[in-house]
Computed example of a mutant assay.
Amino acid sequence: MKPNLLKSIFSKLGFELSDTQVTQFLTYESLLVEWNKHMNLTGITDSEGIYDKHFADSLTCLLSDKIKDGDKVIDVGTGAGFPGMPLKIFKPSLEITLLDSLNKRINFLKAVADETGLDKIDFIHGRAEDFGQDLAYREQYDIVVSRAVAELPILLEFCSPFLKVGGYFIAQKGKKCEEEIKLAENALKVLNLEVAEIKSVETSVETKDHNLVIIRKVASTDMKYPRRAGKPVKKPL
């Protein structure tokens, strides 16, 4: 029953799963539900909700047509691994970095990678403000993704330092995305970014008002960004 439900939800988006991928997603679900009993990973614990609102919703990033085989991708503020881990399962050639400020969540994601047999994943416990200044990570990524972390002006300062010039930041946003883009006009200018596209996506009848805000990096980020931890939130650009 579960494999059929999973395949059905994915196929509505045009994503066909191999038997290996079905097994990996079911393992991910099982670990998510089990670990969630002891720590706060998700408020959604039914299978259909997990498949639709977490797994399939994560894969909508691929509808941007910007993520290519072999790309280096960082998921900033990954939480329980969304959208980075489902992207890795579906497109295993991606070199994925999962960054989160809570070590418990990073430990959970390492367990998922171990149990599903995924490799080429870099796990970072830390703040985007700190690692965005680290030359081992700064401007090293083709794609940055992020979901439900902060409003766009804050998010841009967190994420843009990781992007290579010419790379894309894909932010998963709700119905207020146009409002957020307006608020982010100064941040876009200061951080050398431009909005390339806003793409409306739907994973199910229940999941509406989901948008991909696709932002291109047109020049290097000034070294004064990101500012020290806490500053981007307290005083957005």
Rank of each mutant, 00 (worst) to 15 (best):
V73F: 04
I74T: 05
D75E: 10
D75G: 07
V76D: 03
V76G: 00
T78G: 04
T78C: 03
T78K: 00
F82A: 04
F82L: 05
F82M: 07
L87F: 13
I89G: 03
I89Q: 06
I89Y: 10
K91A: 12
P92A: 01
L94S: 07
E95H: 10
I96A: 05
I96R: 02
I96S: 01
L98E: 02
L99S: 04
D100H: 05
L102Q: 09
I106R: 02
N107L: 13
F108W: 13
L109G: 11
L109P: 14
A111I: 14
V112P: 10
V112Q: 05
V112C: 09
A113K: 05
A113N: 03
D114E: 09
E115K: 15
E115M: 13
E115I: 01
T116V: 12
I121Q: 01
H125M: 09
H125N: 15
G126R: 01
A128K: 07
A128F: 01
E129W: 08
D130F: 01
F131T: 13
G132T: 10
Q133N: 13
D134C: 12
Y137T: 14
R138I: 15
Q140N: 10
Q140D: 11
Q140Y: 08
Y141R: 04
Y141A: 00
D142S: 07
D142G: 08
I143N: 05
V144D: 02
V145Y: 00
S146P: 10
A148T: 09
V149Y: 04
A150Q: 05
A150Y: 10
E151T: 09
L152P: 07
P153H: 00
I154D: 08
L155T: 15
L156G: 08
L156I: 14
E157P: 06
F158P: 09
C159V: 11
C159A: 12
P161I: 05
F162D: 05
F162M: 06
V165H: 03
G166Y: 11
G166L: 01
G167L: 01
Y168Q: 04
F169P: 14
F169N: 05
I170F: 00
A171T: 14
Q172Y: 11
G174T: 14
K175T: 14
K175P: 01
E178M: 08
E179Y: 05
E179A: 07
I181Q: 03
K182G: 03
A184S: 11
A184P: 15
A187R: 06
L188A: 06
E194H: 04
E194I: 12
V195P: 08
E197V: 12
E197R: 07
K199V: 14
S200M: 11
S200Q: 10
S200Y: 13
E202H: 15
E202Y: 15
V205E: 13
E206P: 12
E206W: 12
E206K: 14
D209T: 13
D209G: 14
D209S: 15
H210Q: 15
H210Y: 11
